[in-house]
Design a protein around this nucleic acid. Sequence first.
DNA 1: CTGAAAGCGCTAACAG
DNA 2: CTGTTAGCGCTTTCAG
Lengths: 327, 327
Amino acid sequence: MPTIQDVAKHAGVSVATVSRVLNNPSSVAELTRKKVELSIQELDYSPNILGRNLRNAKSRMLLVLLPKISNQFYLKIVEGIEEKALEYGYNILLCQTHSKLEREKVYFDLLKNQLAAGAITMDPTIDRKTLINIAKRYPFVQCSEYVNAKNLPYVTIDSELAAYQVTKYLLKQGHQRIGLINVSEYFLYARDRKKGYLRALEEFHIEPEEGWFYSANDVSLESGQQVMRSLLNKKQDLTAVFAVSDMLAIGALKELNTRGIDVPNEMAVVGFDKIEFTSITYPSLTTVAQPMYKMGEISVDMLIKKIQGEKVEDIVLEHELIIREST
Amino acid sequence: MPTIQDVAKHAGVSVATVSRVLNNPSSVAELTRKKVELSIQELDYSPNILGRNLRNAKSRMLLVLLPKISNQFYLKIVEGIEEKALEYGYNILLCQTHSKLEREKVYFDLLKNQLAAGAITMDPTIDRKTLINIAKRYPFVQCSEYVNAKNLPYVTIDSELAAYQVTKYLLKQGHQRIGLINVSEYFLYARDRKKGYLRALEEFHIEPEEGWFYSANDVSLESGQQVMRSLLNKKQDLTAVFAVSDMLAIGALKELNTRGIDVPNEMAVVGFDKIEFTSITYPSLTTVAQPMYKMGEISVDMLIKKIQGEKVEDIVLEHELIIREST
DNA sequence: CTGAAAGCGCTAACAG
DNA sequence: CTGTTAGCGCTTTCAG
């Protein structure tokens, strides 16, 4: 790689002039500029981002931290983020944390080192205190899953309410014994959705039994299938299940289909998120639509504001119950 | 962020010593080391990657360039890449190129600027000549889709053969009129799979008609559905279709289900890749399994070798025909 | 309008 | 074993 020095020498000017041509062309005489531009072309020079960022202490990259891209839920969010980021002239870097602290730390270091101008996280694993500290110094926004604290802005939906509504819908359909396929209650959305589910049951004076609760190891088709398997083996006479994620619901559906259990007549199933594949399952899946794309766009808006030093408010977006064939 | 200077001052040593503690601890006296480590802790210092890379001209990041994460095909590859990279002590950065040159260039710049030690690309858009030039200077490996040239190592499967086999399988099942749902023939795999399809037809003395060929705008469920729609509207009396990607096949399946067309009796469908969702479609999808995870692992092996200056050979992996209910 | 020079944070050669 | 110092590639005063 040629450096700015090489270009300067080749064009017979100083490095400062080359730098000016790069960053503020109008401050350089027409003739000099042409000369420099020609040299840049001939040498196929492109500025070294490290040197530049080191000096400027800023970059045009945004970090996007998510647990795993295998969860379709993040797809549309990332699309929204990318589109919006591009509008602002930023590029994004996708980072899988696997909800593991060590991995997350590597990416936070990128942020600390000015390799990225800011970060959007969809699943903060790091402890609350450290997170607050990081957010104090670096532009930082939470999307979907979040930690509630001052100065840690987030965009999300009302999970508790959505879960309440979807459970109530099942109850109104006449279901009396409704299972819950959840994930680790380490996650806020898991706790919230469980709360909503319980609130609906309570309203209908139904006391949930212990055998109604299931927890998946992770958010994947396979885990969904596995949970449904153990659920069926327990013979709890459930007539419906509410899975807190479409991935789990689709996995569950697969197990039901394999066993020849009729959905929705023998077992109704609802999911959460409205990922694309929910429309092609058999039967198509009733679910709660999250405004994923919009969430992505908004998190970028918020992040850019943060970068520019403005204040940003938390945002809670609307969800929507999508009723289809599985109920 | 505290710098190495701050740590040095705080510990009462020189920056060189701090640097040594960081990079070669055994070369520092026990006592001095402890002192420095304490200061590092107290100041919550972590080295600036930019400064380090700028100096070292190397990093521990690998770039992974793919068109879009929404194509499930890349999922398992990325998993394989990530697992293996971690073994070698590298982290990965996911970059979506959308098969667009401008975006790809941004990421190649990261490579040029030593922000990453090397790159794996799954879809080179850049022109052949430039690519060869880049590969001359920077560690670079192709996975799945590739450009055939010296010094541009790749790992892939034999697409032509796989397509030939799957088409032959359909022919043996008695299908006489088999449609092809392809993507732009700009892509090598599109050309290869078409070739294989044509070779099988020829072997059975079947002359394909013009109305048998369809091209999707991109690789997505929606495009698959759209193509199937126009295919059905054309009334070509096809009894089977071969889609060059599972995403397209699943989209096609959706359209068939919507119209109440019986699969496989009225229309057989085969896909390509064996992404996870092919097992939960209705009916489950016949497809060609690619060893995605392994491809990911191998590309990292190759890349690390490249980084270490060793020679690497191209690799063609085995595929497998997975027969399920859609045929 | 242009050049000289300092310095961003770090590592490595060189002295001691 | 430790400190001094040059320099990675770049931008930005400060002079001219």
